[in-house]
Design a protein around this nucleic acid. Structure first.
Lengths: 138, 138
DNA sequence: GGTTTACTTGAGAGCTGCTCTAATGTTGTT
DNA sequence: AACAACATTAGAGCAGCTCTCAAGTAAACC
């Protein structure tokens, strides 16, 4: 049993965001205690993890709400939910690839600056240096 | 030499975003033709790629502007730029890990639904099914 | 028992980073 | 001349937080 702050700490999501998600009806099963305070169970945590996951791969909040509504409807929507998860996975894999590309560029840049520093060179690529610009193989 | 539309197509960034970035002074070296139309050179493309890269790993636009300003200042800022790239790389690697975690969860979910479908089971985890809920090992 | 401290709540303002629309302009084609 | 196809800017609109505030509860201390 967790308060919203404990969930925030445990899952590394800001309290603000959790409240925003709560207001967006992302946690329809979370109960309140007699003082109206949200009490998250372990099952609720799993639910929050899914929401975080969908969000993390760029799923729009409207689409997340749709997924949640499908869960509420029940077993008849399992095929559609399965499809959503599959498509989300595909999206995540594409993001992985894209992130790797960016990492490669950062690697290149890192070595570029390393070389400049070690050899006390100037940044001939920078257009501000009024020199012949060398094409940068990215 | 590319128009903004050609850059948009080539680098898979929307024209709108490119204009927004341009208005944010992210492309200080892009020249205009006699009709005030932006003409991107190959060097400008490399520049846009760096901006896209920084943006893709979540760098705030203010911090991107800072990096650009450092480039404009010149060689004296190379150490600071090197540091920025290094930190950005670290951030990107963390995101890689996080994305892998989300992928693992999606994998788990995919198999979970697969099993439900293949065996015609109900979704006993869903709190809407008023059953004993099985803990979900995530 | 009253006050302080530490939490919670919701409403709503503010911020970032796009995203889109509208008005205007140039160029080239029919 | 009219139209299509592109470019420009200003500025409105939107998603998704992010933060502030006022108000409420509850345990802990004087």
């Amino acid at each position: 049993m967790y308060t919203i702050k404990e969930v925030a700490d445990k899952l590394d999501i800001s309290e603000h965001t959790l409240r925003f998600w709560a207001k967006s009806d992302f946690f329809p099963f979370v109960k309140r205690d007699k003082n109206n305070i949200r009490i998250f169970t372990e099952d609720d945590l799993a639910w929050v993890r899914i929401v975080k996951c969908l969000r993390a791969v760029g799923t729009e909040n409207k689409a997340i709400k749709r997924y949640i509504d499908l869960c509420i409807i029940g077993d008849s929507t399992i095929p559609e939910r399965y499809e959503i998860i599959q498509n989300t996975k595909i999206k995540a894999l594409q993001q992985m690839k894209e992130l790797q590309n960016q990492l490669d560029l950062l690697d290149y840049k890192e070595k570029f600056y390393q070389n400049l520093i070690e050899n006390n060179l100037e940044d001939s690529w920078n257009p501000m240096n009024n020199k012949q610009q060398e094409a940068q193989a990215v």
